[in-house]
Design a protein around this nucleic acid. Sequence first.
RNA 1: GGCGAGAUAGCUCAGUUGGUUAGAGCGCAUGAUUCAUAAUCAUGAGGUCCGGGGAUCAUUCCCCCGUCUCGCUACCA
Length: 677
Amino acid sequence: MKNFKRYLITSALPYANGPIHIGHLAGVYVPSDIYTRYLRMKGVDVISICGSDEHGVPITLKARKEGVSPQEIVDRYHSLNKKAFEDFGIAFNIYSRTSNKVHYETASEFFLNLYKKGEFTEKTSEQYFDEEAGCFLADRYIMGTCPYCGNENAYGDQCEKCGTSLSPNDLINPHSTISGSKPVLRETLHWYLPLDKYEGWLKKWILKDHKEWKVNVYGQCKSWLDQGLQPRAVSRDLDWGVPVPVEGAKGKVLYVWFDAPIGYISATKELTPDWEKYWKDPETKMIHFIGKDNIVFHCIIFPAMLKAEGSFILPENVPANEFLNLENEKISTSRNWAVWLHEYLEDFPGKQDVLRYALCSNAPETKDNDFTWKDFQARNNNELVAILGNFVNRTFVLTNNYYNGEVPERGITDENDNVVLAEMSRIKENVETSLEAFRFREAIKEAMNLARLGNKYLADSEPWKVIKTDPERVKTIMNIALQITTNLTIIFEPFLPFSMNKLRAWLNCDQLKWSDAGRTNLLMPGHIINKSELLFEKIEDEEIDNQINKLLATKKANEATSAKTAPSKDIVSFDDFTKIDIRTATILEAEKVPKTTKLLKLKIDTGLDIRTIVSGIAEYFEPEAIIGKQISIVANLEPRKIKGIESKGMILMAEDMDGKLVIVSPAEKVGNGSIIK
RNA sequence: GGCGAGAUAGCUCAGUUGGUUAGAGCGCAUGAUUCAUAAUCAUGAGGUCCGGGGAUCAUUCCCCCGUCUCGCUACCA
């Protein structure tokens, strides 16, 4: 096992188009913070790097929507998130941002280095250009009619109505969202990083040399490498981002995936003039904390960039977590389905550690997990309050009652005492092993065992009884209880820094080193401890109900807005309306179109004829289940070839907010071909 | 559609390089206890280890076929 001199910890740069939520915390920032704090307590040289990722198309879109500049958007979320992290006790050495000067310089320089070394390939391709606005259009800036569902507001990369992924060329009647004009195809030059060139090297580096990586991480890398890597464009036609620093690249910026990871480097530069020792000395151990959606970037693409540059070290490990759900549903920024960190801090002042504890205990380390407010409450009331807080409180009350806060002398210890004393260092080692292996759930559980040990020790030795018969013996018992309490301040420090800070103040003791954990003489006889308060408070049902109601309100609001989102269409004349031939029909046969996810091929009886209609409903209906159903169709729609099958007509569906489809059929059975009017 | 990961007690998760009674925490039940925020301690009940096949003396664990969840990917329509 290689011995490292220092650590470089990076945490995924949060995207500055929204606030931080519990999903980010559980997946990335809480584990990274625990790990960093642990290393600091060990006294090793470690820095923790993070910052806002502020480029990319979604930010420009949000800015446009709100009628402000992209800079205003990123300023807003950068300061919001930076403060929230600080208040939550995520102890980054620096929380930087990719819109600052150091980053522009660093990213340009990085690009130029590769450029000069000839690491890029250049390629021209045709892309849509807006002649009125005078710029190329990102896929998201192009709207048009979806060729599959007819939605007139489909984006160039995706139709949000039917969920289909599109390319801008698929759109019927494409128009620019900037000027509204019809875009034209124009040639544009881009630079590509030939990932294929690094395939062999990556295979060895990951598949052979890093078999210890988490199975989800390793598996996904293997899948990518087995499929073969393709060159990837590193530039885009956009005006928001780091300009491509070569001649003739006006209007081109570094693509955000290339730009963002360099943010780790520029943040380090901003932090210390010594940055190179963290990034270039092979005796530095670099760890990337990320979520599972980022695996490919951090395990394949960024390492390839670093390798291509040549002078940088590579990550030793990338402990990516899975995702956290909230009350059984996916967390979603756009749907406001989240517990936002800045709101939590307002709603639960002084309770940072409770959330840290709940998220760490239930971190999505091996699979997606669910956060519920009930679980949060239970973790607090049954574990933090009942086990940890209670033990601490018992020890303080007894010590203050019996000895006025003076730590008593430890006399002769009995067998049980010795077992308990020895157990402390065993727990320390267990926590250590778990942390080193990035098993944070296991680590925090083991830490809690120290408090359990304390409770059990008091229950077994019953000082409140013994005090009546053998006061000398009680001194030994309480000395041991106090040593356990002091050990708690070390063991729990990485997990619950706020509470341990309080506890140290009550114990009247300084912050100790990790290596002190397990020692049985941390508080010397005669040392005076202070009065204590409650380490944790119970959380009542009312507070939890408030939070749950808040979420229910969000749900309602979402339903209401989605009802509003379908704006009414233009008035049509009665004549126009009558042109549409809507009538009833019955499904005779239904089968899935092979090699598609959404398409069903239906044979229907329209009363006029038997015909074939292809419909994108396979995700919601089993073919067998809809055979015999009476439906409504548009019978005179222009036929269209879909997947090589001629589709004659369209089936009418009602679509709810989640995209769920429901068949529109007559309330009672009527003859096929009955006109709907 | 391709690929990756997951599916184990009411909940959140361990685990088994295949081997007699599958574990932990929380919840639940019962008992003990009162120093402690009804907090603690002990004991106990709870499981077709996603479904179906197969190989094996034996499998929750291996192989095959499915189902569900999540992620990545694909000019899938």
